[in-house]
Design a protein around this nucleic acid. Structure first.
Lengths: 249, 249
DNA sequence: GCAAAAGTGTTACCGGTACACCCATGC
DNA sequence: GCATGGGTGTACCGGTAACACTTTTGC
């Protein structure tokens, strides 16, 4: 993390980084650990979202991109601001006060944080630890994990936003590799929304969307009949957007 | 405005206060005027949204409620956070720098602002001027008025959010008096979305919504057949929410 | 040959849309 | 009596939902 910039003490950004492993939805969490310097006893050990304070001369959106790149190495990623959290007691837990004290970076006790969520194709991402451990966790687990600060509330809101948005905007593809099978796409929708979907109806609907285009290749290395692959064509999507006004995905 | 609190220099809240006059959608704007102290010549004269910095010991949401109450006297109003604006150049115009200098209240040049929109029944509201003039403007006009700072962008985003949300949540009623006619409701939807709606289909749909309940009173003092009045029953709405999952309004 | 997932059609129902005329009231 | 908005019904179309079996491949 670049520390040559001055940051705003009262404003941070937290990124909810979502990924999909073809089975369930996952989220990136960063371990927060503090051992008593005298006894060596672990006093704090829990998880936070990927976040940092915003620099004085940095656009808000860029702060989110910076954090994302810093943790995943990725650029040109789907990233969307979804809410800002500003209760006075969002740093209320004992652990949180202690943490701010021991890291001693000049962050204020009163911090508003702007939440962004990122959708990434996690099949080929390597996460960067820097000084703290970082890893993927199933979203369902993360929601019961008692995260630092108000990060559980932030995660819940990010998930709600994603669930809503996926019904009207073609953002699910951001979580898949360039080529995907219809079953993978269906599993993704099911993982996000929690509903189960009828296979035949799902395929019928997707196959008549002109921007979901079949490829000549087939799936490879699977112990069963290989599935046809598709990709999402954004150009076709944009061109046909008006005709489809009001349709859901 | 209460100045005994210390505020955060880098964070403000701006409220987009929407109202409806049974014809079109309106928004509250505050005049910003500065006359050259020597010549008396008017140097700045334009409009801003209703906003202020957030106090150190104040929840973010409460800052928005405070601003709203300060300008309208109203409490228990529909108020929703919709986005946060944090470009480094959002105070880039010459007028904006000058303004911050002449009002000299200790606001920073780098300010992130959190946007809220409010929906109020404007039929019986009296706006409070304090030291600057304040008034309702048609949203369509306001969008072409070259507002202060990035307030046009904020207004546009608020409007987009309202347009979207009104399709899936029962928030339109917040802009009407307790009792309203179906024609008023239809005009409101048309004013928000810009679409024209078929009268018979609209009424058919609304009449079968159990939470839009008829009253015994009729409209009064109109030079034509008086219309039946209705009100929105939030309890019935909440009770039947699950059955109607996925329905639009 | 068997396990595992891919792939495929038909029918019924419901909600949305298009469309034109008579009614009640104030003046 | 006339101007003004209030109020009503029907027919068609398209999208959604329910539902079960055959096919292809790897091992």
């Amino acid at each position: 993390m670049d520390l040559t910039h001055k940051f705003l003490a009262n404003v941070s950004v937290d990124c909810v980084i979502f990924g999909f492993d073809f089975e369930k939805l996952n989220v990136v969490l960063v371990e927060r650990e503090y051992d008593d310097p005298a006894t060596g006893e672990t006093i704090i050990r829990d998880y936070t979202l990927a976040g940092y304070h915003i620099f004085e001369d940095e656009d808000l959106d860029n702060a989110a991109y910076r954090i994302l790149k810093d943790r995943t190495g990725l650029e040109n990623i789907y990233l969307e601001q979804f809410a800002t959290f500003g209760k006075t007691d969002r740093v209320a837990k004992e652990m949180d006060h202690l943490w701010l004290k021991v890291i001693d970076k000049g962050f204020a006790d009163r911090v508003l944080t702007v939440g962004y969520f990122a959708l990434i194709d996690s099949t080929k991402v390597k996460l960067f630890s820097h000084d703290s451990k970082i890893d993927w966790f199933p979203v369902d687990d993360a929601l019961t994990m008692d995260l630092a600060f108000d990060h559980q509330e932030i995660l819940q809101k990010a998930l709600d936003t994603l669930r809503n948005k996926v019904r009207t905007e073609p953002i699910a593809f951001e979580l898949l590799p360039e080529c995907f099978t219809l079953t993978q796409l269906q599993n993704l929708y099911q993982a996000i929304t929690g509903n189960i979907i009828d296979k035949r109806n799902f395929r019928k609907k997707k196959l008549q969307m002109p921007f979901i285009v079949p490829r000549t290749e087939k799936q490879d290395g699977v112990a069963h009949r290989p599935a046809r692959l598709f990709h999402f064509d954004r150009n076709i999507f944009e061109q046909t957007r008006n005709e489809r006004f009001g349709n859901l995905f």
